[in-house]
Design a protein around this nucleic acid. Structure first.
Lengths: 143, 143
DNA sequence: TGTCGATGTAATGTTAATAGATACAACGAA
DNA sequence: TTCGTTGTATCTATTAACATTACATCGACA
């Protein structure tokens, strides 16, 4: 029971783009070497981030940059960009309709779990890229 | 990106055990017909719930019952019983240690996401089996 | 305008997790 | 001893995710 790599990877990508924007051209190969995954994974993820309006990618010439300042990008934005907007939990599709529990559990439990999910998304909204960059800078300074 | 069936199935099982305790012997076959999965899945899940101290299962004679009252069992108990206690998110195992983002992202992002996870668990603690039984009873009465 | 490095994307392979199913030993009551 | 049930082991099928290769396309520049 786990989320996929995608949110951490996408966040890593965005942080690198911002952190190195003045030092390097942030190509998919460059980013792949920091994250340590195949460049194709980077390009796919970058494609999702682009579709969500978070980055611009220069086709041909190469490199990516943020479309907003890091203060205005939250993990919620990233999460929505890279994860399907499905329910958090699987439900058994065909519980027994003749059983009062079976025919009502989806509605009853689903409602509660949806609240939990919304709560999680609200937490994501509180975490900005700027927060993370600052934490990384602090760690860097302490090295 | 989803949780497995296990939490909803385990919850379904517990609700059925309590709802039908005075009417039927809640065997794995009986529960399987309400949830509509293979009885072996029920037995495996019941084994996890038993290991967590939430139910007693009568080997030989058959049937299961709760060890506590429904007010005292929360989704947190159920979640812990059926899901491995791993991190919510996967991280790339080997980010580039030469990159300041790569060598620090696990610590920085991991801390934030762990807070989100703890928050989710706290939400689970607020939802009791008794709440769910009451909601189901309300729906039943309205049918 | 041809070259070159980069992106976009399709196709394929690999791995891991999950669920479904069958089989059977062990259990406990009658 | 019989019978219904639980506890497990094992096998298979399915699915999702990630890795990799390959190649068409793009845009700047000599």
């Amino acid at each position: 029971m786990q989320f996929s790599f995608r949110l951490p990877v996408a966040t890593h990508i965005l942080l690198c783009i911002e952190r190195f924007k003045d030092e390097y051209k942030t190509t998919s190969t460059f980013l792949a070497s920091s994250v340590n995954v195949n460049p194709v994974i980077i390009r796919k993820t970058l494609g999702q981030l682009k579709a969500a309006g978070l980055v611009e990618v220069a086709a041909g010439v190469g490199g990516a940059k943020l479309t907003k300042s890091p203060e205005d990008i939250t993990l919620w934005d990233v999460f929505r960009a890279v994860e399907e907007d499905e329910d958090l939990f699987h439900f058994q599709e065909n519980p027994n309709p003749k059983c009062p529990v079976g025919r009502n559990i989806h509605g009853v439990l689903g409602d509660r779990l949806e609240e939990v999910r919304q709560h999680m998304l609200a937490d994501f909204k509180k975490i900005t890229l700027a927060d993370l960059l600052e934490s990384i800078a602090t760690k860097e300074a302490a090295e």
